[in-house]
Design a protein around this nucleic acid. Structure first.
Lengths: 229, 229
DNA sequence: GTCAAACGTTTTGTATACAAAAAACCATTG
DNA sequence: CAATGGTTTTTTGTATACAAAACGTTTGAC
């Protein structure tokens, strides 16, 4: 646990932004937020900088901090990069994965299947996260693993929506199996292709994401209205 | 031009770290640096945060800021990711590049060749940067272009070393030609493969990089010694 | 001699004060 | 009524003051 106020504020603001408490382009008032969190402007401004580094707010010099909700096409672009990063991880992992990591991946695939059969949505979500993290590590490139993890985290709110789509979980499961097999047999091309498709947002998934994004936009919008009252 | 002190300090520190003015793991003294730059601790701490975000320093809570020179294997890893990112840019660009961008790329290839024949090393470096930037943009994915540019910038000091290697420029030129042709003919596989190889650090290049890295380490080390006197 | 506890020093994190830039407001003019 | 210029208010960026945590040192016990 961290005792720095700035980190607490950053986490709180991150949560608020992601859950749509602020409208797109809204200015974050230093003074009002400071007294709301019962801190001074100093840790608040630190939090702003951290949020700017991860792309959640835009910091304009001598203007202030503005929340920046990604436009729909930007999310599509981020998912495309995520798909390519995971594809690279898969290709490298097929050649480099250690027996231990492979064993761990196998365990998470099984845990995913168990959670799915038990109807444990949260459990599935958790194990799925673990599965992908292990694939990143299996690439044998720690820098790549970190970058992938970073983007994965940034896409988390949108992925959560996507997983709610009917039937997504079953398809996801079979893809996990295919990936596992590819890694076991050292088939780098298969690992690359399946992982890219596994993550990619296209075809029917595209429309699903579109729908859930519109909903999240509505939430942000209604929030904006309530703030103006 | 930016009027914020914090940004000036960040740039200055960035330069100093990259050029090896600090040893690896050295603590950056807030007070001493503040009076050296004639600023208070506030903008200095802002600069620390920005540098931490780009990986040049490590920020330990209630400990301080420590410069973090990447270990050799970390640089290799970053180059591997860079190669894969450029490969992705190339693959996508072969399908999506606009006639205007293609024209611009052709222009930079020619400019590179001119600079090379004129023995203009700095000019070649500049046009080469431009060439890669255009390939990123040609991918049609702005987020990808930004990420690629970010990593490219981070690897800049090490790339500069690499280009000094004898014969590298001529090989680089012919690779540019191959990439241009692949983009013109829409050959995504060729664009991907050539760009990956173009960036990758392996074989003889590996040893070249190794040698120049050792030199840069020596510089950092001698600096450390001079500071202790 | 080693370990540990208490003290003083240094350094970080946060609050607050202040200067300067931006925004808002308002009056005046065409 | 629109536009412009000056004045006031707000807000950002920076300096400084202060509290608390980390660090080093000395002292004391075993």
């Amino acid at each position: 646990m961290n005792t720095r106020l700035a980190d607490h504020v950053r986490e709180a603001l991150e949560q608020m932004i992601v859950t749509g408490d602020f409208a797109d382009g809204e200015r974050l008032d230093e003074i009002r937020l400071a007294e709301r969190f019962n801190v001074s402007r100093t840790p608040l401004r630190e939090a702003f900088q951290a949020l700017a580094a991860s792309g959640l707010v835009q910091l304009l010099p001598r203007r202030g901090a503005f929340v920046r909700h990604p436009a729909f096409h930007e999310i599509i672009e981020m998912f495309e990069v995520m798909a390519e990063l995971e594809a690279v991880c898969g290709r490298l992992a097929a050649r480099r994965v250690t027996p231990q990591t492979l064993q761990q991946i196998k365990a998470t695939v099984i845990a995913c299947e168990c959670a799915a059969h038990a109807g444990d949505s949260d459990g599935y979500y958790r194990e799925n996260e673990h599965f992908h993290q292990l694939v990143y590590i299996a690439s044998g490139n720690d820098f790549l693993a970190n970058e992938a993890q970073r983007l994965h985290k940034r896409l988390q709110p949108f992925r959560r929506m996507q997983l709610r789509v009917r039937g997504r979980m079953i398809q996801s499961l079979s893809e996990h199996r295919l990936i596992l097999t590819a890694l076991e047999t050292g088939d780098s091309t298969a690992a690359e292709t399946v992982l890219r498709e596994h993550v990619a947002v296209q075809g029917s998934k595209f429309n699903d994401l579109m729908a859930s994004y519109k909903q999240s936009n509505l939430r942000a919008h209604s929030q904006l209205i309530s703030m103006r009252e």
